[in-house]
């Protein structure tokens, strides 16, 4: 009876003529794929910065040293994009849950989109254009 419905949080695949995909299902899948990426990268980032280096060691000079290595820049860029998009997609669902008026939704979604575009551009800009001495 009830057991049938357990764990079926996956949005159904859109089907029928002309429907190659379903945005909601793609978002669901992206959340899980990025979750697995972040499970490794975000946890590593946190432990590396907080335990291996220690918070007091963090400075302009330390970040500049890290960004001498293209590998670290790539790591930070991937973390930025996956981390923020995972969070933004979650916030989209939170907004849908609590904001019911059509105007409120337009305002909240527009704001979320604007913040997302701004932060990814700013973050990618500094990671890619920083000049190592």
């Amino acid at each position: 009876m009830q057991a049938q419905s357990f764990g079926r949080s996956r949005p159904a695949q859109a089907s029928g003529p002309g429907r190659s995909g379903n945005l909601e299902r793609s978002a669901w899948l992206f959340t899980r794929i990025s979750a697995v990426v972040l499970l490794v990268m975000a946890v590593f980032h946190l432990l590396y910065m907080h335990i291996a280096l220690g918070m007091d060691a963090i400075s302009f000079q330390l970040i500049a040293w890290r960004w001498q290595f293209p590998g670290w820049r790539l790591f930070d860029l991937v973390l930025l994009v996956f981390g923020w998009l995972h969070g933004a997609n979650g916030m989209r669902i939170v907004i849908d849950d609590y904001v019911h008026s059509p105007v409120g939704r337009i305002v909240a979604r527009t704001l979320l989109f604007a913040v997302t575009a701004t932060l990814i551009v700013l973050g990618a800009f500094v990671i890619l254009t920083f000049k190592s001495a």
Binding site: A64, L80, L122, G123, V126
Partner: peptide, 9 residues
Amino acid sequence: HITNIFLMS
């Protein structure tokens, strides 16, 4: 955090 790291510019 992202706003803060942007200050590296």
